[in-house]
Each structure stands twice: as C-alpha cells, then as structure tokens.
Design a protein around this nucleic acid. Structure first.
Lengths: 160, 160
DNA sequence: GAATCATTACTCGGATAGTAGATGTCCGAGTCTTTCAGG
DNA sequence: CCTGAAAGACTCGGACATCTACTATCCGAGTAATGATTC
C-alpha cells in the first residue's frame, strides 16, 4: 500500500500558495521550488482545481491560487482530491462466496472485518480532516519565522 | 491507494482457523471455503507464517494453523505481515531540494506535513492493533452462534 | 493620440507512453504416510 | 506377527508470467498581453 506521491507535492505547494495570496503562481514555478517534474505536478494541481481547492487561470499571468482560506483546506481535502475518496481496504464481500450465504445481504455492513477496517480508516480520515493548511503553515512559521518571506522572495526572483 | 486484497482473505482465514484449533488446514481447503485462487491464497498464508502468525507443516496431513492464541493476533499484525510495515505516506524530503535547505537535516522529523501524516497513520495503526482475531470471532458468534460449528463441519466435509 | 484588431507567447488541460508493484500461476523441495518385503 | 525401508503422494515454498495503476511526458485548446494599424 503506497499513497500517491503527488499528495506530498500538493500539500507543500498549498502551504507555499497560502503565503502568496491573491496572485496566480504557475505550475512551472511551483515545480522549480522543489525541483519537481513540472508536467506531473501540473497534473496534481489540476486535480486540486477540479476539487475546488485551487482556482486556475490560463494564458500569460495565469497559474494557480488557493480557492479559499487555508483555514478551510484540510489535509483530507487534498488526499481525497489526489488519491481518491475510496477506502484503501475494500471489502469484496467474500462471505458471499462462502457456505450458507445470503446473496442479497449487504456484507460490507455485516462483515465484522469490514467494520473494523472501516472504523480504523475513519479515525485516520478524521485525524486528517482536523488538520488544515493554515495550521501547518503556522507551525512552519513557528520553527522558521522567515519562511513566508523567503518563499515570496523566491517566487519574485523566479519571475525575473 | 489500495490495500493488498490478500489482507481480507488472510483475516477471514485466521478467524476460521481460530475455530479449528490444534489441527492443520491446507491452503486448498481454506481457499475452497470462499472460492479463492488456491495458489495466491497460499502465498498470503506463507507471509503470515514468515511473520510468525501461522505455523506451517508440509506433507500429507499438513497445512496451516494459528501459531498463538487468537487473543494475541491483532489485525495490525496481519496487515503488516501481508502489506508490509512501511507507511502509506512516505516523506521524500522534498524540502531538501528547496531553497536554503540543510542537506544533513532529517526532514522526515522536521517537516510538519510529514509529522501530520505520520500522526494520522499512527492512530490508524493503533486502532488496528487494538482489535484481535478473537474479538472479531466473538462478534461473529454474537450475530450467528452456529458459525464455528458450521465452519468445522464444512472443513470436515471437505476432508472426505 | 486613441482605439481596434490581429498576432504572439504563455498557461492549463487532457490524451498518450513507460514503469513499478500487485495479482495470478506453475513446478520443485521436503515430509509424512503407506505399503511391501524380510526377519 | 513385527520391523524396517523404500516408494508414493501430498503439501508448502519460492520462482516465473500477467495485469492494473501509478509515474512521467507531450502536444493542443484557450487566453491574456502586446504591438501594429487605422481613424
């Protein structure tokens, strides 16, 4: 089980975008920041845009920016946007193929194993839903107060 | 992100094995129970044996059985045995490729995103670690008291 | 000099290859059972 | 009748294909800026 690597890129990019409000930043610049493959990062940013986390504008002076306040963007939002909403553990209802099974019963709900796994994933998602981009950004500032200014300067330099 | 499908099979098989103590059950019989591909289930059972969850014996009258009490087999044990111990989210330390990074700093520990994701996975694993095969089996019995006897009879019939 | 229009350059967007990991299958090594020969 | 060994059959175990989905890339559609042209 391995999560889509783009999730990490997307989260870092969102934190950086939270420090550059009101301006569109191109995928190329966001990729250059961490030396990531531009086209592939662009794909992830597209997914965020489809999910309503970012807004995108085409053409010169175009790019991406946060679609809403970073306080209202949770880590779960990003994971769902890029990795999909489906659970990692997917009950195939193998009990249905067992002896004495009821063909029309919903074994996803009945099966104790399915319940336990779904319960664990629920706590996982709840945890991620409680963490926001704003909170992450704040903690980064706590460790390194110059971070936002450094990011802004960096993107300004890339502009020239 | 999709978990190895064999995890589901392995958990169901362990529950069934908990109702047939002291006797080896072949992969073929365990597979027939839910109409699963024998060779592939065998592969998963091997992984459980390597992890010390099952014991395996070769030859006629051979097969698999639980290596310890079902109270001491957690769902996490099975997930780790089959799906691996590595986290789903793997910090690639992309901050290291960012501007002004310290090449010898441990960004897995520093990075706030990495911390948040690891924290969420930790709660997930803690949840699974708290659930045992015995508990699952008990709940199944609660809903269907005849289940263990049905399973035993089923395997006896396959014997003949 | 101002306005309009065509050009141009730049960006996102989705369609298209390449690759790693999961899924599925097969045959060999080892072992227990069974059988048969000998004492 | 008992003992021992050899043959046989059954099971796990790991090595070998296949297939899905993640990773990576490329080119086209659309858009805003820009410059030239005309009034």
């Amino acid at each position: 089980m391995k999560m889509n690597e783009g999730v990490e890129w997307a989260m870092h990019s969102c934190v950086n975008l939270s420090w550059i409000p009101g301006r569109a930043v191109t995928a190329k610049h966001l990729a250059a920041f961490y030396d990531l493959p531009t086209a592939y990062l662009n794909k992830q940013l597209q997914a965020l845009a489809r999910a309503g986390i970012l807004t995108s504008t085409s053409g010169p002076k175009g790019g991406f920016q946060l679609a809403r306040d970073p306080e209202r963007i949770s880590l779960l939002d990003i994971v769902v946007a890029i990795d999909g909403a489906e659970d990692a553990f997917r009950c195939r209802e193998i009990l249905k193929d067992g002896p004495g099974a009821d063909p029309k019963a919903d074994y996803v709900q009945i099966c104790q194993i399915s319940q336990a796994m779904r319960g664990a994933e629920l706590t996982y998602r709840r945890e991620l839903a409680g963490r926001t981009i704003a909170e992450i950004a704040d903690r980064v500032v706590g460790a390194n107060p110059a971070a936002p200014e450094n990011v802004r300067r960096r993107f300004d330099n890339l502009k020239s």
